[in-house]
Amino acid sequence: MSVELSKGLRANSSIVWSELVKNMKFLTAYPTVFVFWTIFPIFWFIPFLLQGQAFVGGLQSPEFAKLAGTPNFVAFIILGAILNSYVLTSLYGVGESMRREAYRGTLDYLLSSPCNKAFILIGKALSESSSSTMYAMTQLVVCIIFFGIEITLGVIMPVLLIIILLILGLYGMALMLAAISLQSKQAHDLAHTLENVFYVFSPVSYPVEALPSWGQIISSILPLTYALIAVRSLMLLRYDIAAVYYEILLLFIIDMVAIFLGFYLFNWMEKRTKKSGSISHY
C-alpha cells in the first residue's frame, strides 16, 4: 500500500522536501561552517589577482585580452572561481551525503524505505545545489562590493539558466560517483581527481586556448567549460544570449548524457550491492 503511495507525486515531492529541510537544519546548526564556505573560497583566488597585478603592473592585461577577449583578468578569475565552486560540492556532495548516511547508520533505512530512490538522490542533489548557490551568491555580492564586479539585471536570468544546466551536468557525474561509492565505499579519490581535471582543463583561471590541443579536447567534454564561456560572454563581454546558444546547446547535450548514464549506473550498482549485502559497510 505504502509502495503505491510513494509512487504518487505528492509523496515523492515530500521526499525531496524532507531532504531539503534536513540539509537546512544541518546548515543552520553549524553557522561557522556556513560562514567558512562563504568567505574562504574568496581567499583562494586572491593569489591569482595579486599575481596578475605583479606580472602586468595593473589590473588590465592586453596580452590576456588576446586569448580571453577581455583585458579584465580580475573579473575573469572571480567568475571562474565562483562557478568552479559548484564542481566539488556537486561532484562530492551527493556521493558524500550517501556516505554520511552510512556513518550515521541511516543508509539501510533510507534504501529499504518503500520510496523511489531516485527522489532521495534528487532531494540530496537539490539540497547540495541550494547550499552551493547560497555560498556562490554571497561570494558574488562580496566581490561586487570589494572587487567592483559589475552585473546587469538583464543577464541574471540567462546566467541562472546556465548555472542550472551546469549543476545538472555535474549531478549526472555525481550520480556516477555515488554509484561507485556504493560499491567501492571510497569515491573521494575519484571525485578529487575529477575535480582536478575540471580545475586544470576548464577555463577557470585562463582561457582554453592556453592549453595544448590535447588539453583542449578534454576541455570540450566538460560542462564547466561551456558554462564558463557562456557566463563570461554574457557578464564580461556583454554579449546577447543568442551569441551563446551553441554553448548552451552543448551544455544541454552533456547534461542529458551524464544524467542518463548516472541514473543507469546508480540503479545497477544499487541492485548489485543489495545482492551482495554490503550496503551499510564502510
Binding site: P47, F48, Q51, G52, A54, F55, V56, G57, G58, S61, E63, F64, K66, L67, A68, F73, I77, D189, H192, T193, N196, Y199, V200, V204, S205, Y206, P207, A210, L211
Partner: peptide, 28 residues
C-alpha cells in the same frame, strides 16, 4: 593522487601567468 596534487595546483598559476604576459618574461 596526493603525489601529483601539488603539480595540479601549480599548473594553473603557470598557465595563467604565461597568458597574462603573453610570454615568460615579465617587465612589471
Amino acid at each position: 593522487r596526493e603525489c601529483i596534487q601539488p603539480l595540479v595546483m601549480l599548473l594553473p598559476f603557470l598557465l595563467y601567468g604565461l597568458v597574462l604576459i603573453g610570454g615568460r618574461y615579465s617587465e612589471a
